[in-house]
Design a protein around this nucleic acid. Structure first.
Lengths: 155, 155
DNA sequence: CTGCGTGCAAAAACTTTGCAACAAT
DNA sequence: ATTGTTGCAAAGTTTTTGCACGCAG
């Protein structure tokens, strides 16, 4: 699932607006990190994004990647996740439907899914508690098909 | 919602069995930490549990609390959560229904809720993906009633 | 006795931050 | 020019671990 050029443009505009609103500047590093991050598809730690960025420009520091990922997260262009290992993983939030995750606790495979019915029920729950929900996350942990087989075989 | 004595007994048995199975030993520290943790109701960081434990025995080290909470988590008697701040929070997993969380991003209030219908739909999703779910977590982030009012008043 | 558990401090893992040089507007 | 940004290294947080001693079984 590639981010289309239209979506990419949309993304750029959102980011520009966000930065303009708070007097932030567009730099070579930021542009590179954002560009590369949105070309990667999945859930990446800062370390992983940094590794990719260094292929193109070895002089970029981790600190800048940390700062830029936080920027993307604050601006709503990326979502920050915590899947239980001790690091924050980011994923693109544009050009995609909202979705949740099935996570294999054996091989760490992540399957994404989407279920409008569940979303609606979540909204209902929130409403009944007087909550105004701005975001949510739902993760189902267990064994994927392949790992169930391996587990049966005692591997 | 207090853990009843019957539930407490159940808890003790589960833990004993778990420890016996792997040759783990029951110590003064472990007993104290487990006891106190199950008397606290809520979602606590290791630091918070430690603070409580030290009231009763100032000689217990954080390391032991870390190790014991991990033990509880591994044995299924406690659940580990990550609510976005950078620390793991534990909550009792016995003597309670499974539940999920509404989290106020302003005042950090946590409301628990339970919804069987959603649970069933989650199971359905997992089944369709060939997943065998062992646990899940669902968190709705937003503003609680009180904070919505404060926000309106521009506070 | 045997070996797991504990306390302590050191280290690890991840993330943030102060600062001087640098770059964008 | 002015102000935000970067790289670096230092420091902050949270959690884990090595080790010598102690305690449970």
């Amino acid at each position: 699932m590639t981010v289309s050029s239209a979506q990419r443009e949309e993304l750029g505009k959102t980011l520009e607006r966000y930065m303009a609103e708070r007097g932030l500047k567009s730099t070579r590093q930021r542009t590179l990190i954002v560009e590369l991050f949105f070309d990667m598809h999945g859930h990446f730690s800062v370390e992983e994004v940094w590794a990719r960025v260094r292929q193109d420009d070895p002089r970029v520091s981790v600190a800048t990647v940390y700062r830029t990922m936080k920027l993307l997260s604050d601006s709503g262009l990326a979502h920050a996740n915590n899947f239980g290992d001790g690091q924050t993983r980011y994923e693109a939030a544009v050009g995609r439907e909202h979705h949740d995750h099935l996570i294999c606790t054996r091989c760490a495979t992540i399957i994404e899914f989407e279920n409008d019915q569940i979303e609606r029920m979540q909204d209902g729950v929130a409403r009944r508690h007087g909550f105004k929900v701005t975001s949510h996350k739902m993760e189902l942990y267990g064994l994927c098909k392949a790992c169930q087989k391996l587990a049966e075989q005692g591997a």
